[in-house]
Amino acid sequence: MMRRLTAIAMLLSCAGLGVFLILSALRENIVFFLVPSDIAALEVDDSSAGNNGAKKNDNRNESSDISDERRDERIVGRRIRLGGLVVEGSLAHDETSGEISFVLTDGQARVAVNYRGILPDLFREGQGVVAIGEVTSRSSDTSMRATFRAERVLAKHDEYYMPRGLEKSLKKRDLWREEP
């Protein structure tokens, strides 16, 4: 009986360790979205990934740092899911072209998003959303890190549930979302 118990404990810990290793290796693929300040990190990944094989020879004569222009080329056109909060007052709707634009932030960097389509019901300023699409341009300026063309916009809602009307009185009393 003790032998079986040890065998089971061994089985579980081995399988657990295996799953842990797989999940940590796949970490970047499991996150559902990137945030605006991740776009800076994306370039670093790109340049290190491009440093092998034939490209290495091409780059040999250049300085080790890849120029900003080249980085822009790599990040532009890349399909990602970008998540963040919609900046208050940034939502604009062009009636003639049907173009919708808003700014996403993660508190550090901002990205300007353009979208043509239907926004989900829960979409509102100050609320979290995930935009699926591609980066159209990039800059080193964190106040507007990149521009983004979204093909789809998903609304995210948080873990707070409360009756209608209550949030207004909470806001008035400054009790709104004290904890992060």
Binding site: F33, K156, D158, Y160, Y161
Partner: peptide, 19 residues
């Protein structure tokens, strides 16, 4: 991981976030 699904609202530290 960052997910579209919201974090736990029932079994979490600091009590439930549901009214």
């Amino acid at each position: 991981w960052y997910s579209l699904h919201q974090p736990a609202s029932l079994l979490r530290r600091g009590g439930s976030t549901i009214h």
